[in-house]
Design a binder for these strands. Structure first.
Lengths: 204, 204
DNA sequence: TGACATCGGATAGTAACGCTCTCCAAACTG
DNA sequence: CAGTTTGGAGAGCGTTACTATCCGATGTCA
């Protein structure tokens, strides 16, 4: 199909598609002639994926590019995938930032016997998010975090269990699942809050 | 204290503080003279809150403004709070967008007997996020969603249980908890994935 | 064959966001 | 009383994600 048709099918303007081609987010079509290129289903899928990661996942196009690179490079091994995946997502923390002596996330997780890489960037993320809750005056103490952690393990078990054995699909599943399930769970949590508060309290 | 000291204590540049004052994100200090204003602890807290919502929560400054308005307006009733809170967060969906006949989130939740407002904007969010997962080729079927939903209810119960009875603090707690716990849970989930995959599989 | 719309590609321009810089006169400091 | 600092206002800047314009080659229909 031609660029115009690709635009129609995906609902993305031709100008934007050209932009994606320039930025390398969309692989070029087969050049039939100098002014004619042919695009296929893989292009439709790719465009939809880019939009999903950017609009729903909230990633910048630069990050989308890195993610695409990871999931189109075949043949990583099982464990490496998780790490690579996650590492490509975290915004690199600005150097020279406040270093409040490692935060409390790491010791807390150790006390729970969680096996995580002590240099995992998400430890930093957790620290910053936890600290932000403190600044906001939310009473997020270790006891409450313990409760959350128990529930989240349940979620992570679903995550891990649904990764296909197929190593080809595993990378894709893990990376995209890591990114795109966040908004799903976030929305679900808000709806659950409403459900719970409706159910537990009897409205007058 | 003066603006310069407020800047020092919060780690936010004077120029940025002035910008926040202009934008109404930071309430003006007591003007001692025409070139002297006095800022207090409430200003320090406010600045930290703005940074937390913007940096960690990922909200735009415009949204931060709306959130601040909600949590500084006293005396809403218990249930209204959740709704107002949540409504101020969701980006208004562009009109004339694709309307695929309401999506499957609503019927799915009904089949689970969840009591949620059928016009809740987070239903839309859930639809879009779910659809994005489909576009990305993740096998997110209803069965898996059921598992997630069970776990998320556990989280929501913690959320609701930790809301103080104090109606003043409740608004703040609910709104900020809704926003700022997302990144906490998100980071926690990634760490839990690692923990689970480390524990369940024996590494060679 | 020729008029003419359309194509892909390249370049430049734009709108929103979140600051940041410059200027100013009043006021505080030594 | 010289010199610095302050708060306030406005314009300017860098990034992001497009969007608009132009171009010459090409396909298409008469």
């Amino acid at each position: 199909m031609r660029l115009a048709e690709l635009s129609e099918r995906t609902g993305v303007s031709v100008a934007t598609l050209k932009y994606y081609l320039r930025e390398g987010l969309l692989h070029p079509g087969a050049t039939v002639s100098r002014t004619q290129a042919d695009y296929g289903d893989s292009h439709v899928e790719r465009v939809r994926l880019v939009r999903a990661l950017s609009e729903v996942g909230g990633l910048s196009l630069a990050t989308v590019g890195r993610v695409l690179e990871v999931i189109t490079t075949p043949g990583q091994d099982w464990i490496t995938v998780l790490e690579t995946a996650q590492r490509s997502l975290v915004r690199p923390r600005e150097p020279g930032a406040d270093d409040d002596g490692q935060g409390r996330a790491s010791p807390w997780l150790q006390s729970r016997d969680w096996h995580v890489d002590p240099h995992d960037p998400f430890l930093d993320e957790l620290d910053r998010a936890w600290l932000a809750c403190d600044h906001a005056g939310i009473g997020l103490d270790e006891e409450r975090m313990d409760h959350y952690a128990d529930q989240v393990v349940g979620i992570a078990e679903i995550d891990v269990a649904s990764v296909p054995a197929d190593p080809e699909g595993a990378v894709r599943q893990v990376v995209l699942g890591t990114i795109l399930l966040d908004p799903v769970l976030s929305a679900l949590r808000k709806l659950a809050q409403q459900h719970v508060s409706m159910t537990r309290t009897q409205r007058p």
